[in-house]
Design a protein around this nucleic acid. Structure first.
Length: 491
RNA sequence: CGGGAAGUAGCGCAGUCCGGUAGCGUACCUGGUUUGGGACCAGGUGGUCGCAGGUUCGAAUCCUGUCUUCCCGACCA
């Protein structure tokens, strides 16, 4: 773990990698650009997934599963879409291996070449819309509200644990609607679901906004997003929801017969969040002692560590600890009792801090005598000796308080890192010295946006929804502008 | 795909300049003492030094090629 977080990218990268690896979330794998998600990291993902899945279902969506392999021709049906993804696709060309006649192990059988190559999905719009064509005939079939939990492969130039891996896990929702308005409403609704989840479960504050044309999803008419701020002052896109217009309906010929007997193209949305969210979680809350996980999604919410001398003491502590554990489990709290005799208490303290477990209870012979327990919270590292009478309520309250304070702390940090800039000099200075979001006027053109990116590496993260309208002058060109947009350097 | 750094025991590293028995820390195993913030003592297991060629009596070390990883850039959820 690095000594302190600095704005220097290499130190922060090292800090981040250490957190992920030493916190037992993931590891590098033998496959280029791919990671192994370890059981602890996967348990975290499962908690996030389950909470999101419930929210999807509460908003009327159902789950389905579509193929991993997509015929190459499907991908080329929507022009902007193929343009956006063509450069990063893994392609399956053969279906068989054989022993090398020259004795060099195993080779691809040249006789087993596929007539049409298959693409490992970089996203599923094409295969899904090809399927929806057969599922939709009448307005009575709409809306179609389907989500899929899946894995995706995108052959990125450069990868980073959780933030950008070659293969990643995600959910992708794909919906079809009878009207433009309904589809836009759906895209906005799912953005709200995402921001609610990320803020309430992950305790990560986000800004809801809309992307500029340049940053828009390949094939979308509008891309809504949630943007989060990391501790090094760089922004991270945490989730997107796209209004796809009729682009995919037209590309895949998905029409329905309306109430007044007219053939019409359907209106579409798609929306997704990925294992990148775990990267955001790590970068927003963690400190130099390791991960800090919000209670609502932490795989282990409370760890109980026995402190004892000899078997007699251990037996007594065991009994009490198991009693406490059972009572907490009864309340739906995820508790682990670590009575592993090989590791000493101090080692365990450090280990669970590294893993970000929100609450630690240390129970020793001394405590039993006085009917108390030492409770330590991960976020503030505060330790308290608490009576065992009423311990359940105490823990429930503490977990809720940690969840809330993590969010408040991250929100203050984020708010302190939204800075207005009035001229170019200030803009550059803020980017270099402070980082964070910079609220500045922009003339609305893609050229200016590109030019700013070129000069500073900063991009327009989003135009916040419900943005205040005010007249001003573009930070670069001085041309008139009606609102400020948020710039930042981003992951 | 460009620029930098690195690949030696499960993990972290030294040794490479100047070729000559494969090292250190940690983890692991055995026994013992320990246990309120990453314990200690003693003994032990574990490595074709990324891979392939070459030079040499002899290569972790020199040369050539190649693969992989990390960091920075371009690309991106």
């Amino acid at each position: 773990m690095s000594k302190e977080i600095t704005s220097r990218a290499t130190d922060y990268s090292q800090w981040y990698n250490d957190l992920v690896i030493k916190g037992s979330l993931a590891d590098y794998s033998a496959v280029k650009g791919c990671m192994v998600i370890k059981p602890y990291g996967y348990a975290l993902w499962e908690n996030m997934r389950d909470a999101l899945d419930k929210m999807f279902k509460d908003t009327g969506h159902v789950n389905a599963y579509f193929p991993l392999l997509i015929p190459k021709s499907f991908l080329s049906k929507e022009a902007a879409h193929v343009e956006g993804f063509a450069k990063e696709c893994a392609v399956v060309t053969h279906y068989r291996l054989k022993n090398d006649p020259d004795g060099n192990g195993i080779i691809v059988d040249p006789d087993a070449k596929l007539e049409e190559e298959l693409i490992i999905r970089p996203t599923s719009e094409t295969i899904i819309w090809n399927t929806y064509k057969d599922w939709i005939q009448s307005y009575r079939d709409l809306p179609l509200l389907i989500n899929q939990w899946a894995n995706i492969v995108r052959w990125e130039m450069r990868t980073r644990l959780f933030l950008r891996t070659t293969e990643f896990l995600w959910q992708e929702g794909h919906t079809a609607h009878a009207t433009r308005e309904e589809a836009i409403e759906e895209a906005r609704k799912m953005l709200d679901v995402y921001s609610t989840f990320v803020e309430e479960f992950m305790a990560v504050p986000v800004i809801r906004g809309i992307k500029t044309e340049t940053e828009r999803f390949a094939g979308a008419e509008d891309t809504y997003c949630i943007e989060a701020m990391m501790q090094d002052g760089k922004a991270l896109q945490a989730g997107t929801s796209h209004f796809l217009g009729q682009n995919f309906a037209k590309a895949f010929d998905v029409k329905f017969l309306s109430k007044d007997n007219q053939m019409e193209f359907v209106w579409a949305t798609s929306w997704g969040v990925t294992t990148r969210l775990i990267g955001a979680l790590v970068m927003v809350h963690s400190d130099d002692q390791g991960l800090v996980l919000p209670p609502k999604i932490a795989p282990i919410q409370v760890v109980i560590i026995p402190v004892y001398k000899g078997d007699d003491q251990k037996k007594e502590i065991d009994t009490k600890a198991k009693e406490i554990m059972a009572a907490l489990k009864e309340l739906g709290i995820r508790v682990k009792y670590d009575d592993n005799d090989n590791a000493r208490p101090g080692w365990k303290y450090a280990e669970y801090e590294l893993k970000g477990v929100p609450v630690r209870m240390a129970l020793g012979a001394r405590d039993l005598e006085k009917n108390v327990v030492e409770v330590a919270r991960r976020d503030t590292k505060e330790k308290k000796v608490v009576s065992l009478d009423g311990i359940n309520d105490f823990i429930v309250t503490m977990l809720a308080s940690i969840q809330e304070e993590l969010f408040n702390k991250a929100r203050s940090f984020r708010d302190d890192h939204i800075t207005p800039a009035e001229d170019w000099e200030e803009f550059e200075k803020l980017l270099d010295e402070k980082g964070g979001f910079i609220a500045a006027h922009w003339d609305g053109t893609a050229e200016t946006e590109a030019s700013i990116k070129d000069k500073t590496k900063a991009t327009i993260r989003c135009i916040p929804l419900d943005n205040k309208q005010e007249t001003g002058k573009c930070i670069l060109t001085g041309k008139p502008s009606v609102q400020r947009v948020l710039f930042a350097r981003a992951y």
